[in-house]
């Protein structure tokens, strides 16, 4: 039986279990904290930094998706500096990739797109980076378009942690980072991919999609994930 702790989020009294994260408890109380790399059912990596919050008494900002709640904690999720960094991050994401919503399969259902609205990015003030990125259409059912990838690594994690295939990983580093299948070889030739489509459905943008989908036609289903995780942990 885990211990119940009480804390304050944005000066509101809330309670949670001591093994829950700040994000878990916030969501239980309908307090919105933006996230991109986090997904229920996968391990948390704290990479996108959108869920950064201020905790009274801590020097640095902390990621709500990884830090556990504690008795008496005072958390702030919407301070001016947090809002500023979130806007800056989303703006950097948009200007760094080749994100052209009007021709994208997930237009209207994209997490990056809706995040821009939520954090208040209305236009991009940074010059576009326009990188040269590759697209792999060799898989018989799916496509990876790295122009739309934001490196959240959900596909890498779901393939490793849930499917157990570990077809996906990362190549390069820094700004050159990119997702790869196997030895950076064609997805269609993959000896490890089971074709399960989990990576496609956890992808927050239009980077991974089903073939045959036109603009705005790709809907992603993720509700299966926490269930799969729970069933696997039972075993």
């Amino acid at each position: 039986m885990s211990v119940v702790v009480t804390l304050k989020i944005n000066d509101i009294d809330v309670s949670g279990q001591e093994d829950e994260t700040i994000l878990d408890v916030a969501r239980e109380h309908d307090i919105y904290i933006p996230t991109m790399c986090h997904l229920d059912g996968l391990s948390s990596v704290g990479a996108c930094r959108l869920c950064l919050v201020e905790v009274k008494g801590m020097n640095r900002l902390v990621t709500a998706c990884t830090v556990k709640v504690a008795e008496g904690m005072e958390v702030y999720t919407e301070t001016e500096r947090l809002k500023k960094y979130r806007r800056m991050l989303v703006e950097m994401l948009f200007s760094e990739g080749n994100h052209i919503c009007s021709v994208c399969v997930v237009n209207g259902r994209c997490e990056l797109q809706s995040m821009a609205g939520r954090v208040g990015v209305q236009h991009i003030t940074l010059p576009y980076y326009n990188p040269l990125r590759t697209l792999d259409t060799t898989h018989e059912r799916f496509v990876i378009d790295r122009n739309r990838c934001i490196l959240c690594t959900r596909c890498v994690r779901v393939c490793d942690e849930i499917e157990g295939a570990h077809t996906w990983d990362l190549g390069g580093r820094g700004i050159e980072s990119h997702v790869v299948t196997d030895l950076n070889t064609f997805w269609g030739d993959s000896p490890t991919c089971t074709g399960c489509s989990k990576c496609v459905h956890v992808c927050p943008t239009g980077a991974l999609f089903e073939k045959g989908r036109s603009v705005t036609e790709m809907t992603k289903h993720r509700e299966f994930l926490p269930y799969l995780t729970m069933m696997r942990e039972k075993k």
Partner: peptide, 18 residues
């Protein structure tokens, strides 16, 4: 820093390039 950023977290991966 652009060369040595590991690319894991978004602010550093994107910021060192910008």
């Amino acid at each position: 820093f652009q060369h040595e950023s590991c690319g894991k977290c978004f602010p550093c991966q994107l910021g060192t390039q910008r």
